[in-house]
């Protein structure tokens, strides 16, 4: 009985990362850009856990670092959405093309 190999997970994680990057680059809505970043972090997590499962004698360190990545992602999305809400209140837009406060 053969389950999915390490390469299966690596290719899927790479595809998900690139789709997240595509979403983050393509979208103009700041909330959607944050969604793309979350997807990229999640794909990196999948890579981390797959490496720990298949290519390391002890999977515990890889899984613990995946937990830390989740903590960082949660903190990032909380602060990012607070900034988006502050922008939506003050500038009445979440379009990143119109947010040029520091652009001069």
């Amino acid at each position: 009985m053969t389950g999915p190999s390490a390469s299966h997970f690596f290719v899927l994680a790479a595809a998900l990362f690139c789709l997240g990057l595509y979403a983050a680059l393509r979208r103009r809505n700041a909330v959607l850009i944050l969604m793309g970043i979350e997807m990229m972090l999640n794909a990196a997590n999948l890579n981390l856990v797959a490496f720990a499962r298949y290519l390391h004698p002890d999977p515990a360190p890889g899984q613990s670092f995946a937990v830390f990545v989740m903590a960082v992602a949660a903190a990032e999305v909380a602060v990012g959405l607070a900034i988006v809400l502050a922008l939506a209140r003050r500038r009445k837009t979440v379009d990143v093309n119109e947010i040029n406060l520091m652009g001069g």
């Binding site: 809505n29 909330v31 944050l34 969604m35 979350e38 999640n42 989740m70 992602a73 949660a74 999305v77 909380a78 959405l81 988006v84 809400l85 939506a88 009445k92 837009t93 979440v94 379009d95």
Partner: peptide, 22 residues
């Protein structure tokens, strides 16, 4: 718990609270 429970709730609240044009 974290992504589907917390992050998605935050994102949906942010979509609802930000400008309706979005």
């Amino acid at each position: 718990l974290v992504y589907v429970g917390a992050v998605m709730t935050l994102l949906i609240f942010a979509i609802a609270l930000s400008d309706p044009r979005s």
